[in-house]
Design a protein around this nucleic acid. Structure first.
Lengths: 230, 230
DNA sequence: TGTACATCAGTGAACGCGCGTTCACTGATGTAC
DNA sequence: TGTACATCAGTGAACGCGCGTTCACTGATGTAC
């Protein structure tokens, strides 16, 4: 039982940035300081609260205390801002996985370790979906791709993105002899499907509103099933 | 290998209905005849092509050859129309499952039959998602509920909705002795998660663009995994 | 069988909404001399 | 160290968009007598 603790990179510099939420507070200087960062932060906050559709260019500029069109100095258009927000959301999922993996006990056989690692990846994914619904939707709600042409902005602290974490964990499983090599190919899609489905069912579907501990239990049963079935 | 053949209930009566797509063609009578049905059909077609967001009230009335506000004689508002379209989409999923189950050979032991039935339910779900992406998204894309307070409009030809089909198939598995009763509870959520996840991954995620036969194969591996792991 | 009438399905016009995006601008900043 | 200047980040105003929804209406239809 592990509480979710997610780091989202926030403003590196707060120099000259208007206080979010109080657009009337004037900047002390003409230039903003780091408007790109401020818009991105605002976008992330919007996504957190309302998912990808809530990432509205005008609202982001409003929160940054800046004219609507100022955004076009830093992003080509709304899509471009949304893509940056999405990358941050994907990175946050990677971090949730990393946090979960950090809790894996170091003792045990290599097989036990490998299994625990796969489970941590899956559990991190599902936990994140439940804890940060808006960001999860932004990352994996609509169309997305994480596997090819890895975008460094989508990595967690280790630099690996969620898909790469899953792949690495499955590779470990093979190395530990817990997964026959001939079953390795495509296994990420089987595992991911499972966990992705439960994540969405717990957000949008019949599992919506299920208390976190029940969800945790059901998630463990799901991971049991994957472990046994893979 | 079973081609998808889905029946969507279309106009029962075409009396007096304007030809869709040619809004200029005048009706012969003042009254439309069956505007509710025409709007619903238009809504279904919009959903088919573009998912739930494409179900736009004004566009539906345009296709029905009618003034925008005429829709309010038959639907309380846009949400209401969308709900009706969603029910039709869910019913279509149920029919896809039924079509798949109709192909299950009648020979074999009860256990074989039961397994085949569960697989048919899952395969129908995934096949539908791939073949009728827009409708699938409308049915199960955003928030949805199918299990409680069953809406008869969501049933297929047998009257059962997709969730009920899955439940029935799992019950059969228990009856046939292929699933220990103590594992029955909650099993629908495990199975559904799995299949739901792959459906979405094949529409939105990394599996997008995968050819149908590859998807079919991967789907079977997924169902193997569920069968073994449940 | 004919006539008066109530009903209510569809009309026509208009509304306010917030959005993304473009335009010509201005003036603080950092740089070259 | 001081001055002229080019740069370009942010301004202010405006645009067209299609949407959902409301209003007062009209006239074809079916019904009661």
């Amino acid at each position: 039982m592990n509480s979710v603790h997610i780091e989202i990179p926030m403003s590196v510099t707060t120099r000259n940035s208007a206080t979010p939420g109080s657009p009337s507070s004037p900047r002390s200087t003409y230039r903003h300081g780091d408007l790109r960062r401020a818009l991105l932060d605002a976008g992330i906050e919007l996504a957190r609260q309302g998912g990808p559709d809530a990432v509205v260019l005008r609202e982001a500029t409003r929160r940054a205390g800046v004219a609507p069109n100022a955004a076009y100095r830093h992003f080509a258009n709304r899509q471009d801002l949304l893509a940056a927000v999405r990358a941050a959301a994907v990175a946050a999922v990677a971090q949730a996985m990393e946090a979960e993996m950090a809790d894996v006990p170091t003792g045990g056989t290599p097989t036990e370790q490998a299994h625990a690692r796969v489970r941590a990846v899956g559990a991190g994914y599902m936990r994140f979906a439940h804890a940060e619904t808006g960001l999860f939707r932004t990352a994996f709600g609509g169309q997305f791709s994480v596997e090819q042409n890895p975008d460094p902005a989508m990595g967690g602290l280790t630099g690996l993105n969620p898909f790469e974490h899953l792949s690495a964990a499955l590779d470990d499983l093979v190395t530990a002899g817990a997964l026959p090599p001939e079953r390795r190919q495509g296994a990420e899609y089987l595992a991911w499907s499972t966990v992705h489905g439960m994540a969405l069912l717990s957000i949008d579907g019949p599992l919506r509103g299920t208390p976190a501990d029940m969800l945790q239990l059901l998630g463990q049963r799901l991971l049991d099933m994957v472990e046994r079935g893979l």
